[in-house]
Each structure stands twice: as structure tokens, then as C-alpha cells.
Design a protein around this nucleic acid. Sequence first.
RNA 1: GGCCGCGUGCCCGAGUGGACUAAGGGGGCGGAUUGCAAAUCCGUUGCUCGAAAGAGCGUCGUCGGUUCGAAUCCGACCGCGGCCUCCA
Length: 543
Amino acid sequence: MPLTIYNTLTRSARPFAPADPKRITFYTCGLTVYDDGHIGNFRSFLAADLLRRWLESPLCELVNDPAGSPRRVVHVMNITDVGHMTDDDSADGGGEDKMAAGGRRIAEAKKSGKLPPGVEIDPTDPRAVAEFFTGRFLRDARDMGLKVAIEQATNPLVMPRATDHVPGMIVSIERLISRGHAYVVGSPGSRVVYFDVRSLASYGALSGNTLDRLREGEGGRVRAENQAGKRHPSDFLLWKEDRTHLMKWPSPWGEGYPGWHIECTAMAVRCTHPEAASLDLRTFTVPDGLPIFDIHSGGEDNIFPHHECEIAQSCAAFNALPEGAPLARLWFHPRFLLINGEKMSKSKGNFATVRQLIDQGHEAAAIRLELIKTHYRSNANFTDQGLKDSARLVERWRRMLDAADQARAHSPEAGDQAARDRCRAEFAAAMNDDLNIAGAIAALNRWANEVREPLPGDGVLLRELDAVLGLFDRPRAHGQETDIGVFAPGVEPDPRVIDLLLARREARARKDFASSDRIRDELAAMGYAIKDVAGGRVEVRRA
RNA sequence: GGCCGCGUGCCCGAGUGGACUAAGGGGGCGGAUUGCAAAUCCGUUGCUCGAAAGAGCGUCGUCGGUUCGAAUCCGACCGCGGCCUCCA
């Protein structure tokens, strides 16, 4: 059965048929780099990565391309390094610039000594702030196995930065004006360019927020006092002239900054196109209202207004027939991640970043599995218990892989090929069914439970499935070696703990188990779990 | 007010009309291992009766409906989450 995916645009799951299965184009709305990416951001990026890896797997079958044939996904994920306003509701852009907010965070970290050593950064320079968080994001993304971030090292085009595409945004806006979809208000010194939502009857098709349904007063976006010269309350900002702004660029409408939807229009069109480098946005036109690329993804909160506005802009600017085009064939929106059953929010203080988890000693592979193992269209819940479960699963599969590799030297046996074929088929069937990852993992475990002695052929299958799951290649932190044993990643070898462990070793040597058990209880009370291993040594972890 | 997603066993989570009425994981229980633990491996895990094979009853938010048959389809209701400001 070929791959079926739920499409936000059609509100239904249909077989996915890219224009060219040998070159599938995929654009993901990435991170605004004014802070570290949190696990919610990564859940959505990893869902996109899982889709991309599945499309590239030989096991994946498409309605217009059989399984087993090589396939390439051109996956582009942008980096928003322009500081859009924290309050987008007022028509002329209010609130604080996000890069300024990011700079403030850096300044605070500097003051409290939390900034990593060796980092010299000017918190008032928005470009430096963006650069700082971009570097951290790329590192986290690669640790998490985001293929697009790994590719970025050799092909920067797959992760374009908004500040590098301002000319493309300006060209896009010019085309919107000349095609009658945008207009300029105000006089030099305070000009604003708006998109004219009434010029496109299909506005609202993605989100269901058609113009008649966008009621005044529910949010604040459509509010009379914020209109500032708009022709319709839902018209949105494309360019704002503002010479005092933190980040500004010259344009035909004066020095200022772009609206927050237009960057994706410019980057998506350019970067997914085969002739990206030479593509001239001035003349680029998509015939007959066809989609410009195959897949567009982003968190569910992006559906409105961001993706709705992006469709409107892109189709109005580049499609011969703007009304009939959905910009992308497939709109893929992973749901939000809850943490311990609650929505993450800064006020509750329950934010977790990938970097924090890794620094605490959690394995990258376990974090990745925990974030991908719930179906992308459910609200997943991130918990400590879940993270433990995932870590254990990863360990189990790794042990199996190691055993299979060990068997390579002395076992010419093929093993149970029929069982492997069944696993492969069940895994594929689950993934083809709207990325049923839990079903796919169950298929893997059912098979793994049957394999008593892993053989080389089993290792081949494990690697084949892991090309999709993306777990084996994640970096593994190593614990710190000491005389008494090894301290797990994230656990500092406290001298007090070492003294207790030495005392316990002596007690055990004397067979004074009452004392040794008392010490173990004492360590447990301090939050340490210990495990005895060969040679009188121990492994120390957080309890 | 509009649009959308969801509600499964102790917990997490598959299953979208029929092989006993729920995959897989966790937890629990039993065993191997260990001085004891931890980790790992094996078995087991709705209830009642039975030593056992087995038999009976029950379960998928609630209430109705469709059907020979429903966790699965339809309707109503209850509850949770998201969007309609910024957020992945």
C-alpha cells in the first residue's frame, strides 16, 4: 500500500504523489534564532525529518513510484534571523524586536556568569545575537539527527537565512504590487506595504479562517484601532518603512524591514527550485496554477496566520493562476508537545531545551526517539518516564546490533529471512499509513523478540530501519572514568561520593555487607544509584 | 462564536466493521543471575470458577442508533487540546 499522509489543506488522508518522485521538494518553517530551540520546536522538526527519511527509504512506496527505487528529497529549512515584533497584532508592528529580546537574554546570562566560557558577544548587535543562537541550533539539530542540518555543513543552501534573502522578499513584494495584490499607504518616511486579502478569493482555504469568519475582537489582529490605513482589517504587513528599527534594509518603499510572512515566500520558492542559484524571481512564473513545491511543514500554530498568508503571497506573486494553487501539494502540521501533561510556557517555567537535556546526561538518541515515537498528529506528552523508556529501547536495539556485528566473523548462517521480511513488510505498512511510527516500532519489537541470536542479516535489517528512525548514529556521551568506577554522563564525580564508594569497596572486600548496604542507602538518599560491575568497580548514575 | 484534532487496559500508546474481546513498550508479579541490589535475560499480567486443560463474565469517555456482528460507522452529550494575538 502506497504512502498516505494527512493533508491539512484537504482535511483528509490521501495517497501522496509528488510531482517528481526522484526529486521531492520539501520546505519546513524553522526556528527564530533568538533563543535555544526547545523540545517542542524539535518535535515538529523531527516529525518533518521522519517524513523526509521515510520518503528516502527504499521501503517507502509512493502511488507514483514503487518501493526500492532511489529517491531524493530536497529538504529546505529556513532560519529566521530577522527580529520580527513580539506583538504582531498592531498593524504597524509593535512590541519588542525578538533579536533585542534575545540580546537581553544573552546580556543576562553574561551578568549571571551563565554564558559558556570563551564566548564574546555584543548583546546589542542583532546579527551577533542571531549568529550565536544559529550556531547552537545547528549543533542541537545535528545531535538530534536532523538530516537537513547535517547536510547544511556541505550545502548551506538547504538552510537559508532570512537576512540573506531580503532582496528576494523585495522582488516578491514588487510583483505583488504590480499584479494588484498589494498596496502602499502613507508618505515617504512612514510608508507601509500591505497584502490585499480581498484580491484572492481562496484566502482562508488552509485554516478555514475565511474573511467572513475572522471576527473582530476574538484575537486582536482584526481590530479597528490597528488598521492604520489598511483597506481590509485582515490585510497584513509586507514592508514597513522605519529608519529607527534595529535591523533595517533599503527598499523601494524606504529603509525598513519586511513583514514576517514574506521571508518564507522568497526562500521557499528559490531554495526548492532546481536552478536555485540562478533563479530570477523577477520573471519566475509557475504555469497553470500548479503547486510550487511538494510538501510544506511547520508547527500547528503556523497554520494561521503564517501559512495562510504565505500561500496567499506566494501564489499571488508567482502563479499564473493564483486562485487554483495551494503553493504546496501537502501541508504537514505536527501537533504541539505537552510537558508532564501541561502546555509548555515560560510563565510556568516548564520549558526544556534539547541542550539542557543533553547536559543533564540524557542521550541524544533517547531524546530523539522520545520526540518521534508518538504520532505526529497527536499531542504528545514529554515525561521523564517516557525518556527512560526510550533510552532503554535504544539500548536494547543497540545491543542487538552489536551482537549481530559480533556474529559476522564466525557465523555464515543466514538466519530467519522470512521473519525479517515479515518485519520489513509490517514496518513499511505502518509507516505508509500516515507515518504510524508506534505501529512501526511494534513491528520492529515483535521481530526483535523472536530473534534469539542476532546474525549479520539481522544487523542489515536493523540498519535499514534505523535509516528511518535515525538513532544509531547519534553522538553518545561517555561517562567520567575514576579509580572506583565510571560516573554516568552529567554526573560529576563528587569527592564525598568517591570516599563513600571507597569505604564501601573495603567493606565488601571484608564481606561486611551490612556496612556496604548502609553506604549504598546513604548514596541513594543523596540521589545516586550505583551498580556493581566486574573488578570491584561501580557505575554511578542519578537515581 | 467559527474552524480543526483528540478521548483505548495501572501508565504510555497501536488498532478505524468479524480469526476469544485490544499490538508494542513501561510498571507489577514469578524465575535465572547477584552476598543483597542494580542492569540484563526468560515467563506472566481484566475478573470469577478450576490443580490444569478449560468454562463463564467483562472492557475501549457517556447515552442512543445502524449492523448478523462495533473500540472501529452515524447522532447527541460530556471532557481535553490547538488555531482565530506571539509561539513549533
